[in-house]
């Protein structure tokens, strides 16, 4: 009689389960993940903007916020196209998007030479404009357009910038509450 042997790999399975659980914890139960990998060429910027724009609209952002998210992603990808693969063979631009109920997260990664993000975080705009400087505004724009920005630089392995936009920014809620209080106060005075 032929016997069938079923191999079980409890250790691996439990690791997989743990990993799945970790992923659920990190992403949240309602998170949806999307990914677009393109060659590092400026011709793909439009494609990346369109991809991100459609997902951002679907996530519930208005036109103004969608434009900001698209521009931030464009700036991150332009940096990859212009600087990541200088003097080394060009690799990919990896764009990963995680959409949660409350936030929209874009991570742009490359395998390039890396850079020091602190250098470009906050240029002195008065000096910048008075000296007619050119370029180097991408990272400053990303910081201005998005709610949270984190860089992780591992040259030739994985350099990434994670950008988050909240669907309902806490500050906006505060502003609304303040407006309500002002309205109430005004009514009382009447």
């Amino acid at each position: 009689m032929k016997s069938t042997r079923v191999e079980t790999k409890p250790y691996k399975n439990s690791e997989q389960l743990k990993s799945k659980a970790r992923e659920t914890t990190i992403l949240g139960h309602h998170a949806k993940k999307y990914r677009l990998i393109t060659p590092s060429e400026s011709a793909n910027l439009e494609l990346i903007r369109d991809f991100i724009g459609k997902l951002a609209y679907r996530a519930g952002f208005n036109g103004d916020h969608v434009s900001k998210i698209q521009l931030a992603a464009d700036e991150a990808c332009t940096n990859v196209v212009h600087h990541a693969y200088e003097d080394i063979p060009a690799g990919p631009i990896d764009v990963e998007i995680v959409v949660n109920r409350d936030k929209f997260q874009i991570t742009v990664s490359d395998k390039g030479v890396g850079f020091d993000p602190e250098k470009f975080a906050q240029p002195d705009m008065v000096e910048y404009l008075s000296k007619f400087k050119k370029g180097g505004l991408g990272i400053h724009l990303i910081h201005t357009l998005m709610d949270e920005v984190t860089f992780k630089i591992e040259p030739l392995r994985k350099n990434s910038v994670k950008m988050i936009k909240y669907v309902h920014k806490p500050e906006s809620a505060d502003k609304l509450r303040q407006q309500e209080i002002i309205l109430r106060e005004t009514k009382k005075r009447r």
Binding site: L45, S67, D74, T78, F132, K134, G135, L137, L141
Partner: peptide, 12 residues
Amino acid sequence: YISSAGLGVFMG
């Protein structure tokens, strides 16, 4: 649409 690469042309 304009990105910082476009703004750079004016500065240049």
